[in-house]
């Protein structure tokens, strides 16, 4: 047995055990749905959790000067207002799947990290490319 490789091997075994029993256990319920929160709000109060759902249509309010972002996460049953600071990711829009890391502050969820969950469906834009009007609108939106 070559000792240094054996030590390395044991470290890897420990790392796998840690990931499998600690890490995987935590990531198995990767996010909590709004209706699950509503069933038992006390369970999640003050704890750092991930809240998952869809961005409610028309609920996005973003102030580019203060970078304050407000929107509502819904699972179709329960709606939860989210407050987050920072520029929203590129794919952030109405009806987009999101996972927000943060904690509840009363009724409002304070996001620390905003993640996008996109689908496995990939499609070309309807016309096969952006029309000049669409490009113009995208540039306007990005301002």
């Amino acid at each position: 047995m070559k000792t240094k490789y054996l030590i390395g091997f044991l470290i890897i075994i420990a790392a796998i055990a840690y990931l499998a029993f600690g890490g995987l256990g935590n990531s198995l319920v990767y996010y909590v749905l709004p209706s699950e929160y509503a069933e038992n709000p006390a369970r999640y109060e003050g704890k750092r959790i991930r809240l998952g759902g869809l961005v409610k249509e028309g609920s996005i309010r973003f102030d580019p000067r203060t970078l304050e972002l407000e929107f509502v996460v819904t699972d179709g049953v329960v709606e939860i207002p989210v407050r987050h600071e920072g520029t929203p990711p590129e794919l952030f829009k109405d009806n987009q799947g999101v996972v927000v890391e943060g904690r509840f502050d009363g009724k409002v969820f304070k996001g620390e990290n905003l993640l996008i969950k996109h689908s496995e469906t990939y499609q070309a834009p309807p016309t096969g490319g952006y029309t000049p009007d669409e490009v113009h609108r995208l540039i306007e939106e990005a301002k």
């Binding site: 990531s27 198995l28 990767y30 990711p89 590129e90 990290n113 905003l114 993640l115 996008i116």
Partner: peptide, 12 residues
């Protein structure tokens, strides 16, 4: 990073 927003997250 450009789609989800992070390089890594501990999801399944």
């Amino acid at each position: 990073r450009p789609t989800w927003g992070v390089f890594w997250t501990w999801e399944p």
